[in-house]
Design a protein around this nucleic acid. Structure first.
Lengths: 150, 150
DNA sequence: ATGAGTGCAAATGCTTTGCATCCTG
DNA sequence: CAGGATGCAAAGCATTTGCACTCAT
């Protein structure tokens, strides 16, 4: 049923398997982030968990997010324009992003992995050993587009 | 001859045309940035101009970069991983970037503008009114790739 | 019990702001 | 000579760090 719970469980299992401790704070952060498609900031997560963990500190949030990132269980993205906070992404499958220029909403978009021929062509053009690709489409989300034309 | 000088001149002309004042600091910043393909940070530019303008402040650098950005004469990019400074880009033609995961070098890559059919398809998938695309290829630059295999 | 993890607070890095002064147009 | 631009310093965010204490393993 709950894809979100499944995802949280898988993330926690992987953390445990890597020898990291499963503290109540970590479990809560992972469960909050798993299945969250809004690409929250550390501050967002901190605010949401404040009620349940009044004494939790930013250091713990960052510590957990770093640990997740180190094990490729979350991705991160930095957006232009928006205030400068990193946004975290529990979606670990190949995907791109569409970002709203007005409200800074971010949605996922499926993507094919970078193919070898393209990587080699880029390598020829740039001298780089290209290993991955990130695309950001920008524009207006449905809600903001509506507000604009109104 | 000097593409760089031409570019600086064009940028300054456009600023003037927009009613902005051409101060010695602005002229120096524009000339420093024009034709610079390294995607420097505000700090980089500040450091390079320190000798010529010992009293110049960060506020002036940011002020000028903001003015240039407001008139679409420079672009900006925020990179993951790297320390969190915005990098500025005098290249205003459609292009993408390749970023070195090790040394954070950034090189430009020509790009075709986003075609209408693709934009519409993305709109169908996301609900977005898509107006642009940014691609970041990541990997290792030639120098860092060499150092790795050594 | 032991060392990884936590909380707190101070520090850091990048960027912005307020305001008095200066200088371009 | 008027208002935009500059310089300086302080404030503002996002994030990191140091350290004593706690708790999951």
């Amino acid at each position: 049923m709950s894809t979100r719970e499944d995802k949280a469980h898988a993330m926690l299992a992987e953390l445990k398997r890597s020898g990291l401790k499963l503290t109540p704070q970590r479990i809560a952060i992972v469960r909050e982030l798993a299945g969250d498609e809004t690409h929250p900031t550390a501050q967002d997560l901190f605010d949401r968990l404040r009620a349940a963990f009044p004494t939790m500190s930013f250091a713990t949030v960052y510590n957990t997010l770093d640990a997740l990132a180190a094990h490729s269980l979350v991705g991160s993205l930095r957006l232009r324009g928006a205030r400068g906070a990193v946004r975290f992404d529990p979606n670990t499958s190949a995907h791109h992003h569409a970002v709203c220029d007005r409200c800074h909403a971010v949605v996922d978009l499926p993507a094919e992995p970078l193919d070898g021929a393209t990587a080699r062509r880029l390598g020829r053009q740039t001298g780089f050993l290209v290993s991955g690709e990130e695309r950001t489409y920008r524009g207006l989300c449905a809600r903001c587009a509506d507000r604009s034309s109104a």
